[in-house]
Structures are given as C-alpha cells and as structure tokens.
Design a protein around this nucleic acid. Sequence first.
DNA 1: TTGTTCTGTTACTAATATAATCACAGTTAT
DNA 2: ATAACTGTGATTATATTAGTAACAGAACAA
Lengths: 139, 139
Amino acid sequence: MAVNTQFSIAVHIMAGLAYRCDKDTTSANLAMSVNTSPSFVRRILAKLSKAGLVETATGKAGACWLAKDAKNISLLDIYNAVDAPKAFSIHGYAEQKVCQVSCNIKKALEKALTKTQKAMEAGLAETSLAQIVSDMTKR
Amino acid sequence: MAVNTQFSIAVHIMAGLAYRCDKDTTSANLAMSVNTSPSFVRRILAKLSKAGLVETATGKAGACWLAKDAKNISLLDIYNAVDAPKAFSIHGYAEQKVCQVSCNIKKALEKALTKTQKAMEAGLAETSLAQIVSDMTKR
DNA sequence: TTGTTCTGTTACTAATATAATCACAGTTAT
DNA sequence: ATAACTGTGATTATATTAGTAACAGAACAA
C-alpha cells in the first residue's frame, strides 16, 4: 500500500467497461474483476464520471458504462480524471536564507518538472483505451 | 512524508556541488542547504557515488564533488542513480481466473507503462545539471 | 406504497513507503 | 593518538494510500 495505483485501477475499470459494452455493469462486477471492494471502485468511478468519461445510473437498476467510444478516450484522459501523482515531486523543505542554492533550486526544479510532465503526458496521450483492449484480447 | 522526493533532493545536492565547485563540501554543508540531516544526505550521496556522478573522500578531510562537468550530467542520469518511482505503478491484485480483463490487463498496462516511461525519461534527458544551475543563478 | 438494490459519499481503520534520527565502524589527514 | 569525515545499519515517526463499513438518496418493481 501507500503507493498510488489509482491510475492503473482506473484503466482496469475502463477496460472492463469497454470489454463488456452493455449497460448493466455494477461496481460489484468491476470490484470482482479488480479484486477489491465495490466501495473503492465506486470512489474511482465517481472521479471518472465527473470527468465525463463514464455515465452512471443510480437506483435499483444502477449501473455504469462508457460515456464515449473507447477509441476517443486516451490514457491521458484517465490520468487527468483520477488525481494521479506527477512525474516527480519536489521536496518541501524550508529555504535557508543564507544559501543561494536553497533559495533558488525550487524554481529550477519546477521548470524541469513542467517539461518532464509534458513529455510524460504526451506519452500517455498516444495510447487509447481501445488500444489497451486490443492489447488485452489479442493472443 | 511518504512521498518520494529523493530525486528532487538529489538534484538539489548535485546543484549545490556544481555551484560550489571546490572539493571541500561535506554532507553537513549540503544538509544545511537542503534542510535535512547529514545522514540522509549521505545516503543519497552514496547512490550518486555508485552511479559515478560524484566522487567522495573518507577520513578527516572527507568531502564530495562532481565526478564530471555539470554540462555532461543530465537529469536522467540523476533519476537513474536514485531509485525514483516510475511514471505510474501497476496495481498488484491477484488475477481472477474467470475474468479475461483481470487476467490480461497487466500485460497491456506494462506496455503502456514502458512507452510512458520512455517519454518521461526523454524529457529528463533534455535538461542538464548545468541548465539547472543556470536557471537557478540567473535573475 | 413498500421493499429492493444500486450509486455517491463520509468516516474510520490498517498497511506500508518514506523520511528522520541515532549510532557506530571504518578511514584518513593532522 | 586524535579528530572529523564517510558509509551503513537499525529503529522510529509520519503521511499517504488502500480497505472497509455504513448510510442517505435514487429509481425501479411488486
């Protein structure tokens, strides 16, 4: 635990929804596939729903399904929907006033992080959910 | 705590070493700049040393310094030296034999991770330590 | 209308990765 | 010999995360 796997679980969930393209998939169904609790699945599902990637129905015949075609959903969309960690995180130590390095390093690190983050997101944008499903089913 | 910031601390340390280009910098000097304990600095320094990015001297006049010119050290070198986390991490749930998604999703996720990781590393490779120092000192 | 079964959300607990700290053996200048 | 550093092991503290339970609200069916 204590390592954020929500992105990969979210992809798992989305792949499940893409795979069974009906409209009667419940959080319990997905939880069984992922091997976790329905409650946890619902929490992630809620984020995906807020981001407009899935639609849900409450009530007795409650269910969830993809809001759009898997071809039009990228891994970046999913990454943005769940609050996945950045490419790297900058330490939060207080600046030592007497030290120029200490006072200015964060600015430089932030610039580097922005660049790295962009590169990573471009990589995520290249793969669609449909591609994931295809990789999954073939062979 | 509980979020891995070793990469950013390592960059801070390396920037410090690049900034004061003498050969009498100690872990205590660096610890003051970063605002942490010398012990923690030394542990990161040890990794950087094993990776051939810094050289150290033990004994009374113990110290550390860059092993090569800052222009020839990239952020990727530093990223590889400390064991920084991957672009994202794949969940470790057991496969549900009856579910095709559950059984095959990891393969697809690993492929996506490899691609994303490469993109991110390419981004890191673009920035040199010298660039960081330059960003830090100007203005 | 009443009961059932789902989502959405809150509150809480447990697990674990990480930083922080302490301690000390080994090394080398003075 | 002494002092002062690195390198490393052991331990503790803390923050983040997953996991779980519980329940209000919603919608459908009888």
